[in-house]
Amino acid sequence: MALSLYVNTSSWRAHQQTVLEQFPGIVPVCKGNGYGFGHQRLAEEVTRFGSDILAVGTTYEAARMKDWFSGDLLVLTPFRRSEEPVPLPDRVIRSVSSVDGVGALVGARVVIEVMSSMQRHGVQEEDLGKLRASIEDVRLEGFAIHLPLDRTDGSDAVEEVIGWMDRLRAARLPLDTMFVSHLRADEFQRLQQQFPQTRFRARIGTRLWLGDHATTQYKGAVLDVTQVARGDRFGYRQQKAPGDGWLVVVAGGTSHGVGLEAPKALQGMTSRAKGVARAGLATVNRNLSPFVWDGKQRWFAEPPHMQVSILFVPAEAREPHVGDELEAHLRHTTTTFDRLVER
Rank of each mutant, 00 (worst) to 15 (best):
E21F: 07
D338T: 09
V138T: 01
T335N: 13
Y35F: 13
H321F: 12
Y236N: 10
D52M: 02
T270E: 00
Y218E: 05
G280N: 12
G323Y: 15
T18C: 01
L183H: 12
H256S: 14
L88T: 10
A2S: 15
C30S: 15
K66A: 08
R132W: 10
R91Y: 01
E136G: 11
P87H: 08
A14Y: 06
L168F: 03
T283C: 07
W68M: 10
R233D: 05
R91P: 03
P87G: 04
D137H: 04
L266R: 15
A251C: 15
A62G: 14
R41Y: 15
A241V: 12
V46R: 11
A62F: 11
V99F: 01
K31Q: 13
E136L: 00
V225R: 04
W164M: 05
G36K: 15
P304Y: 03
E126N: 06
N8D: 14
S255D: 14
K66T: 11
T77Q: 14
T336H: 06
T18L: 08
L42K: 05
G34C: 07
L105M: 07
L105I: 02
G252I: 07
D127T: 02
F300P: 01
V110Y: 01
R139L: 01
W299V: 00
T335H: 13
L208S: 09
S97T: 00
T9M: 05
F300T: 03
T58S: 14
L5K: 15
R41L: 08
R272G: 00
V27W: 13
T198D: 00
D137T: 09
R81Q: 06
A63E: 05
M1L: 06
G220S: 10
Y35A: 05
H305P: 00
G107W: 06
T18S: 08
E45R: 12
Q189W: 02
T336S: 12
F143V: 05
P24Q: 04
P304N: 05
